[in-house]
């Protein structure tokens, strides 16, 4: 089982993720936008508006401030985790030496950023879950919404555990991924905490293209429809 999760499943996950994304997003673009469906006032630079949406969650900030705090914290945590995983594993915690830090300093910084990201994601997800369990939002939630959040919480919790309770040597993880990417056989043991975390992570990546977790892509495509598509000049500039 352990061998399957680290030696076989990752290739399957990769294929499902890539082809799933292509399948789903192509499906969206196969549907047409026949009419101009934008909302007014139309922004002068739709691109800039979409950037504000990506960077700051502008609409949520404008209309749902409390949710914005939870959602922005959560997504910022996820984003930092994403970057941190790539940099942290590729450089085994020594990524900050590129900016002039000593290896020891870099490991400490890497740990600190990991704590920050992990805390943001954990408490963000927890807040979103609690919000979903209460009052108005409960009325619009379905099992899928809870499963999404619980799965993410499981991944974040095991990830946090690997940084604090059951530390995992980053060099071992780096070596593992190097072997995985070069298609070399994985005939050695990896820490159990890592395998559990890794398993949940792969479940998420396989499930991502077929779920509403792809709201990142879908939302942007939709926002683009709402924000662009009208080129008529005004009779009078007011």
């Amino acid at each position: 089982m352990k061998h399957f999760v680290v030696g076989v499943l990752p290739y399957l996950t990769f294929l499902i993720l890539v082809f799933g994304l292509i399948y789903r997003i192509r499906g969206w673009y196969a549907s047409k936008v026949k009419y101009q469906l934008n909302l007014f006032p139309a922004p002068d630079t739709p691109g800039g508006e979409i950037l504000k949406e990506i960077l700051f969650f502008k609409t949520l900030y404008r209309f749902e401030r409390p949710l914005w705090v939870m959602s922005y914290g959560f997504h910022l945590g996820i984003f930092l985790i994403f970057i941190g995983h790539i940099a942290g594993i590729a450089f085994a915690g020594h990524q900050f030496t590129l900016f002039g830090a000593t290896p020891e300093q870099s490991e400490k910084l890497s740990f600190a950023f990991g704590m920050l990201a992990g805390t943001l994601a954990f408490f963000g997800a927890l807040a979103l879950l609690l919000r979903r369990l209460s009052g108005q939002v409960k009325q619009v939630s379905d099992p899928w919404d809870y499963i999404d959040l619980l799965l993410i919480l499981a991944i974040v919790t095991t990830g946090n555990a690997m940084r604090t309770l059951a530390p995992v040597e980053l060099f071992a993880v780096k070596k593992y991924f190097a072997d995985l990417f070069s298609l070399r056989p994985i005939n050695y043991e990896l820490p159990t905490a890592f395998v559990i975390h890794y398993f949940f992570g792969q479940i998420l990546l396989m499930y991502l293209p077929f779920s509403k977790l792809l709201h990142l892509a879908g939302g942007l495509i939709n926002k683009a429809i709402i924000l662009t598509g009208d080129g008529k000049a005004k009779l009078l500039k007011l």
Binding site: G27, W28, Y29, A30, S31, K32, V33, K34, L37, T59, L60, F63, E64, L67, S71, R131, R132, Q136, V137, V140, S141, D142, D145, K212, L214, H215, G218, G219, I221, N222, I225
Partner: peptide
């Protein structure tokens, strides 16, 4: 859903955030 991207995305991408 095949005719309208907006409709298709509405069916597939709502996260039930409640806004």
């Amino acid at each position: 859903a095949a005719e309208s991207r907006m409709f298709k995305l509405a069916m597939e991408c709502c996260t039930k955030c409640g806004a």
